[in-house]
Amino acid sequence: MADVEGAVLTARSRVEVDGWQEAIRASCQPLLEAEAIEERYVERCIEMVEDEGPYVVVAPGIALAHARPEDGVKRLCLSVVTLAAPVEFGHSENDPVDLVFAFGSPDSTQHVSLLRNLARALQADLADKLRTANTVEEVESLIQGIVQDVKED
């Protein structure tokens, strides 16, 4: 619980990117600016996909970028970026991607409640709400809503 309340949450809306690597960078950039992650974490997130394949595309249109705690995470954090135009990650079924989440966890457990609630929100209608959000404030409040849900969990 305390973990989640201290989490860094960021949102960006209708970001223009060229390709999936840029999409991942865009999702990590606000976390970098908030000093929740180190520069090397961003590169690791990209390398993960290069090494392991596009499995981070967890649902149609949705990518969840992340690397490991030891790759440079300072604080528990979650970012969401909606893309102005979708990009291909090379996933056979879930491409193209227009919603990119990035998260970082300082250890192997702190992110669990946050991600479980993200999952529940995605099982419901979070993706549709993000796609139709017109302003960054709307996107921000949707992402804050996940934390509210965690507190109520």
């Binding site: 392991e52 981070v56 992340h66 690397a67 490991r68 991600l115 479980r116 999952a119």
Partner: peptide, 18 residues
């Protein structure tokens, strides 16, 4: 299962639980 065992597989676990 997923590549790192932290993110995607946890999302899937929550869905599988339900």
């Amino acid at each position: 299962v997923c590549g790192v065992g932290m993110g995607s597989s946890l999302i899937l676990r929550t869905t599988a639980e339900k």
